[in-house]
Design a protein around this nucleic acid. Sequence first.
DNA 1: AAGAAAACCGACTGAGTACTCAGTCTAATT
DNA 2: AATTAGACTGAGTACTCAGTCGGTTTTCTT
Lengths: 195, 195
Amino acid sequence: MKKKDSILQAATYLFSRKGFKDTSMAELSRMTGAAEGTIFYHFKNKQEIFLTILKNLKEDILPEFERYKGEKSFKTGLDMMEETVSFYLYVAGLKEDLFSILHQRYPYELAETNPECREILEAIYNCFVDIFETAIRAGQEDGSIGDLPARKSALILFSMVDSLVRFRMYNLYDVGALYNEMIASCRRMLGKAKR
Amino acid sequence: MKKKDSILQAATYLFSRKGFKDTSMAELSRMTGAAEGTIFYHFKNKQEIFLTILKNLKEDILPEFERYKGEKSFKTGLDMMEETVSFYLYVAGLKEDLFSILHQRYPYELAETNPECREILEAIYNCFVDIFETAIRAGQEDGSIGDLPARKSALILFSMVDSLVRFRMYNLYDVGALYNEMIASCRRMLGKAKR
DNA sequence: AAGAAAACCGACTGAGTACTCAGTCTAATT
DNA sequence: AATTAGACTGAGTACTCAGTCGGTTTTCTT
């Protein structure tokens, strides 16, 4: 592997575990075997390393969800919603490092001054909320989901699922024990009320 | 005001705005007018300042919720749940600095090695989840809330409400626009299904 | 008023920080 | 074999950091 790639790989690992500020160039150098100078030969500064990782993150994760969007075919929109929740949790587990980076403070701090960073973050979150919205709209068409504001409900749904990811990441709660109840809650929340 | 108090006040402000790592003792000294030596006369190190703030945070916030727990008297448990959500959001807005500290990475990192920190955090979160659980159990007794696992549902409820706080803090979404839909969602999620 | 104790000061330290730069190495091209 | 360009090096730079220390001022006690 090229030095540049191993720098990015190690930086992804370190940033996700220890955060941006708590990762030093000396540590990154030690971990990759690349001299500190080499790191700054490939990236003009520490922030550029982070931005590159964020760009890769987007190009890694979004297609995963886009592909999923094309593939789904379910009995009802409500079932699709459940499968989407499950899929999100699955990907978040698979790409733990990347999702952990999204749950830190630094990217949002950077986004305030750096438009490129802002754009990337927006694209990522739009994609996330979109897949939930798609499922909700499908459910509304086939009658399995009630008549409620799709985008807002998608946002609420996303925030619920994402906090599960957070629980798992910080080891705050056994997520396995919460998963079934979470799905049931989402069904009650969105499903058509019985009259 | 005593120097020690103004140090704590300024540190609370700085830690919540810029995070623990990004707040320097020099800055804290400048802001309070206390010499750096004075800061270390009152606190043995930076971490102790943070722990003191966390302790104060607990002693500030928990009684607020305990008092609320004693006062409530509502038609149904479901109504009480709604009022509790609203109360949590109200306090989170009132004590923005403190809640912002709870949404950072450092306290959880510290909790991994520092049992005292771990205890404080657990006490705080237990208290938070408790007030939601109390409402759910009340609703189950008066029949306004369905027969579902109270603690887990309380945890899901809490995570929903807390992500609203997060949205507001990071300016990610207009929370006012989401509030009504969130309440309605919670009602559907917990309310007794119509048969 | 004298002495003791507590509060306070700020220059200082040494370890750590992101980043630079003059120069070396490697491999492809001529 | 000579040239060239990109990859790489690591000692060095200017700076920031949490924490220390010797000394001064303020406050309390007798």
